[in-house]
Design a protein around this nucleic acid. Structure first.
Lengths: 340, 340
DNA sequence: ACGCATCGACGAAGCGCATCGACGACAGTT
DNA sequence: AACTGTCGTCGATGCGCTTCGTCGATGCGT
């Protein structure tokens, strides 16, 4: 492996000059820059990350703490991960995986050993045990998810309250007077995973304003639970039933159960799910969706942490960003009555 | 951040002694070790990764190259990623994400900058464009997947040929004389993604030996394509139809289409899918599965690369490991006739 | 023609650790 | 008592880079 010293010799300049050509932190004449760049090219020189980190005290690596809770929809987590990784590269950073199994000590480790300059935490819960550690860490941390007490933390998430509101408003406009929300897994709900509460707040507020009834029913990956929820909803609904299934796992099951009950989305039942546009179109009946914007949330999370890293002003920051959700009509919901 | 020098002062020893206590590469008396360990504890010292990498020429980081091809089943990729990350930690290594978007230059970058000591490549194709780069890289690389020409490469994968063989044998034993295999997406098949070919080889060989007919039909995430495949299969089958759907995306669709054709798995049609045991049990009708052992493949991949990193004998290695697949009967396949 | 400012390049000093040679202390030998 | 040999510790050096102070060269004005 060639070093910057080799490059300097090949170009006939000092090693520090090579460094300045690379960083642009001091003016370099056109002539010598050309020479140095040629030498770099010819030797296929690449700066050593360890040495660079040691000298500059910056690793250009961001730790990404990913959840592996089995009840989560893996495919959607993967979407976060992929977008985060790609966006980080666009900002000239790399992503180090930190698994949740390592817990809070894992955060201390990667920061303490200075393996990374900052962290992104996914799937932050209302009372996350890692928050005290995060606050004490003294490096930029961006949370995806809003904890109960966001004081001194930088948070971003989809606007779940808006999402809940949009779903109920939409179904109400289509003529439904009862909207059944199949929630996330009971484990998730009980843990007061922040977004669940926010979503519910959105549905309930809208329901109150519009005079619509909202039923909250348990979700999960268990078919029987969902089937039970559906039947309960059907029993309590007068008129055409409407379902909202914000969790990916749930909506797959929901569709099958509705079909086994002889109900066809868009005809005698309305269904709003959550899926990316491409996936939604592929469904047997194109699914009306509430888009929780995972890609946009991911992009912004990376952008925010990169800004914090640039600024590198010490001390805690605080901010809270909510990404607007988007509701899209496809064929699985009833059309609003004319004139509505 | 305290340094090893600080620890040395606190313990009243030389910095090198601290280093030796940590690495154990030279004998240290019980007494001074205790002193040093106490100082480390008290200062909450953690060695600086950059400095360590610079001095030792080892980063203890493994680059994981993940595919983001939309047609792949994201949930199963996530399983690989999670197991790989956790296993790496058990071997005292970290995982750096390298996205496929960076392509071959990305591999050169992370290795050239010495951000990581070795690579794991997922989703290696038959004629992968990255192979020449990998061979020239001069660091340990483990491929998950078997390319057409594995010369000089270290590969591991599930034994897809065994899987194909097991499926056909199993269905033949249950009395089926025609077995319909719904393949992966046409894009995947056309690319000669190695495992598709191997799986087919397994099914066809077994079919030849047992005098069974195997139909290969296009798969994918498109419902109409699968529906078409199913109908073709039904038309060509005499007796009770049997389906094998080794791709996760496909099997979801397959189940729904069969049910819409009035066929019940385990009663008037046999279905073998691929899913983890927990998922398989959750299906409306517990799914007989061919387990492609993603977790085991992941664990071994990490183990192999860690061994290569320990040994750190330069020059190319070559090995090929196939993880045996496991077929599990649940209720979605017919019982073999008595006495069989 | 001389002095002065400006620009561009240089050299040296670390960053925090691993590693190697060397050396002091102590035990065992003759 | 002098000698050899371990064992445990120290000091110095270098990994490859960033960064700061410095200084020579060049241009300008008078």
């Amino acid at each position: 492996m060639p070093t910057s010293k080799d490059v300097a010799e090949a170009a006939g300049v000092a090693q520090s000059t090579v460094s300045y050509v690379l960083s642009g932190k001091r003016p370099i004449s056109e002539k010598t820059r050309k020479k140095v760049e040629a030498a770099i090219e010819q030797l296929t020189y690449q700066p050593n990350a360890g040495a660079r980190a040691l000298a500059s005290r910056k690793t250009r690596v961001i730790g990404l703490v990913i959840p592996f809770i089995p009840e989560l929809h893996m495919a959607s987590i993967m979407e976060f991960v992929s977008v985060i990784a790609n966006t980080a590269r666009q900002h000239d950073h790399d992503i180090l995986l930190v698994t949740e199994d390592e817990g809070a000590p894992g955060l201390r480790r990667v920061v303490g050993q200075q393996i990374c300059d900052g962290l992104i935490l996914m799937q932050v819960e209302g009372d996350d045990e890692r928050l005290p550690v995060v606050r004490s860490l003294n490096v930029p941390v961006v949370l995806i998810g809003i904890p109960r007490d966001p004081t001194g933390l930088v948070c971003i998430d989809a606007d779940f309250e808006m999402a809940g509101d949009q779903c109920v408003r939409d179904l109400a406009a289509a003529g439904h007077s009862v909207v059944s929300v199949i929630d996330w897994q009971p484990e998730v709900v009980d843990r007061h995973v922040n977004y669940v509460d926010r979503f519910m707040r959105g549905t309930d507020k809208a329901a109150g304003e519009l005079g619509v009834t909202v039923l909250h029913l348990p979700g999960g990956a268990d078919r029987d639970v969902i089937a039970d929820s559906v039947d309960k909803a059907l029993a309590k609904t007068t008129g055409i039933p409407a379902f909202v299934a914000p969790d990916g796992t749930v909506q797959d099951l929901l569709r099958r159960i509705l079909s086994s009950r002889g109900l066809t989305p868009g005809v005698d039942v309305s269904v709003i799910g959550s899926a990316s546009p491409t996936l939604a179109d592929l469904q047997p009946i194109p699914l009306s969706t509430i888009d929780l914007r995972p890609a946009e949330v991911s992009r912004r999370a990376v952008k925010i942490i990169c800004q914090l890293l640039e600024a590198d002003s010490p001390g805690p920051h605080e901010s809270l960003e909510l990404v607007p959700t988007v509701i899209t009509h496809r064929s699985s919901t009833l059309r609003p009555p004319r004139g509505a």
